[in-house]
Structures are given as structure tokens and as C-alpha cells.
């Protein structure tokens, strides 16, 4: 099983509902983001190109945050989900520095924190909070190892990219273009 997120940038309007939902679902403290919106503008007025992306931890297949963790607090769980065991984390911040996506932060309580793909919901058969609230239905979540899954079909049929593939981490959040 390999959980991935597939986000349709054509539908996304950057409304940040994903961010808000993550905050309330996961009690993310004020001033911190587990997910966020990036707007990328290329070209000049009046013909710029605009891509809006809902970004978060990419739950990489080669996660440098896991390999640099001195205590094993950062681990790869079922479905390739990268998680941090709070009570094993010493707060050395190596994982923050190791992530090319800057997806992690130090929780005010001291441990490293980030997107969990809402594994607590996924384990109960629900979608991650961000996916479940998205009013544009631009976000999809599922198992890439299942060729019949929606995410597999979307990645087969649509052009897509991932972020900073050159950083070599094999990110698993994909953006349909």
C-alpha cells in the first residue's frame, strides 16, 4: 500500500479550506501550518500563468527527515506515511533542516510536527480532513499500489508533477496540471 495525494491545480482556487480544516481537525496551534497554499506566477501581465497548490509534507519515499532522525522518532508507517512519535522526539530540528519542502516545524510543545495524512481518520476509513472539506473537490487521496484507485487513474490519465523532484526525496503529493 502506498498512500498518495493527488491535487488538481485546475480546480483549486486556493481558498485555504484545507488549511483551516487541518487546523481544527488536528488542533494545529495558532501561527503554525501543517499545510498551506502556494501561488506560482510565471510570465508577464496580461498573460501570466498561475498555478495554485495546496502543499504539505510529501510523505516521501526517500524521506531525509527519517534518515537524519537520531532517535527514530520520525518513522515511515503503513502506506508510506511519515510520522513523528512526539515522545521520542528530542527537538534537535535536524529533520526541519533536512526537509527540502520546509514542511516541518517545531510544535510549541517542543517536538517536530507536520502533516500526518490524517492517519487517525484514514485508519477509520475516512479521508484526510483537508481532502474531505475541499469545496472544489480538487484533492484526492488513495492507494497508488491499487491500479483501480482514483489516484492511480488520475495519475495515469492526467499530466502531473511533484515538487522539487531534483531534491531526490521521491515526493508523494502530486499536482495535476
Amino acid at each position: 500500500m502506498r498512500y498518495v495525494m493527488v491535487i488538481d491545480t485546475r480546480r483549486c482556487v486556493g481558498c485555504m479550506d484545507c488549511v483551516v480544516a487541518c487546523k481544527t481537525e488536528n488542533n494545529v496551534p495558532e501561527g503554525y501550518n501543517r499545510d498551506w497554499i502556494t501561488e506560482e506566477v510565471r510570465g508577464a501581465y496580461p498573460q501570466p500563468r498561475l498555478e495554485i497548490r495546496s502543499e504539505r509534507c510529501n510523505h516521501c519515499a526517500r524521506p531525509p527527515c527519517v534518515s537524519c532522525c537520531p532517535t527514530g522518532a520520525s518513522r515511515v508507517h503503513r502506506g508510506g506515511v511519515v510520522l513523528v512519535a512526539h515522545r521520542q522526539c528530542i527537538g534537535c530540528k535536524a529533520c526541519l533542516a533536512a526537509c527540502p519542502y520546509d514542511a516541518r516545524f517545531t510544535h510549541p510543545d517542543g517536538y517536530a510536527d507536520k502533516c500526518t495524512f490524517c492517519h487517525h481518520r484514514v485508519d477509520q476509513g475516512q479521508l484526510p480532513a483537508c481532502v474531505s472539506v475541499c469545496p472544489t473537490h480538487c484533492m484526492h487521496f488513495g492507494d497508488l499500489d491499487n491500479p483501480e484507485s482514483e489516484v492511480s487513474r488520475l495519475l495515469r490519465s492526467r499530466a502531473h508533477h511533484a515538487l522539487l523532484p531534483e531534491a531526490g526525496c521521491q515526493p508523494h503529493v502530486f499536482y495535476l496540471t
Binding site: C15, D17, V19, V20, K23, T24, S132, V133, P135
Partner: peptide
């Protein structure tokens, strides 16, 4: 109206 999905303001009504 919402078809099961609120907008960010609705979600942030908390």
C-alpha cells in the same frame, strides 16, 4: 447549498 463541504470561513467558524 454546501453539499457536505463548507468554505474556509465556515470551517473556521470555530
Amino acid at each position: 447549498l454546501c453539499r457536505g463541504r463548507l468554505c474556509p470561513r465556515g470551517t473556521g467558524g470555530v
